[in-house]
Design a protein around this nucleic acid. Structure first.
Lengths: 67, 67
DNA sequence: TAAAAAATTATTGTTTTACAATAAATAATT
DNA sequence: AATTATTTATTGTAAAACAATAATTTTTTA
């Protein structure tokens, strides 16, 4: 049961597009996509923090299992 | 507001010692300590998954902000 | 409170991979 | 259909996860 970063739900909630998030946190669109789609094998807390701040949420809101 | 892995609370809940957790998940005591005490700058999902499985909890239960 | 056990810190080395940068392909909007 | 957004692919580099080990410190227990 792998762990993924589920950003899509939060993006929808905030009516925000990936492009906007990317701009805010200073990460490349390609890399956000990797994080978003379960292609990343880990994450730096600094990045996680930026994402959470931009989405106004907690790590637990976007990190979860998936089967 | 940095992000940390808060394992201590969960360990107490499960009445488990770090040593025991370490043995279960096959990580070195030194490295668990680094993760536990905010010295790590990131984490691999594989490791996070092992920890969560051993502690029977979700990522959100042990990842959180700290000031 | 002394001995034992557990946990932390420190150090070195290796391997993995996050992330950047870029470009091309695909998907979604308008 | 055209534009915009997202994903995928590739290459390169820097960062750091984690192993292994040993020494130090803290906690537990008798």
């Amino acid at each position: 049961m792998p762990i993924v970063i589920n950003i899509d739900v939060m993006l929808a909630k905030r009516k925000m597009k990936s492009k906007e998030l990317v701009k805010e946190i200073g990460i490349t669109p390609a890399n956000l996509s990797i994080l978003k789609n379960g292609k990343a094998k880990g994450i730096r807390f600094e990045t996680l923090e930026k994402i959470c701040k931009a989405l106004d949420c907690k790590p637990g809101d976007i990190i979860d299992y998936v089967d």
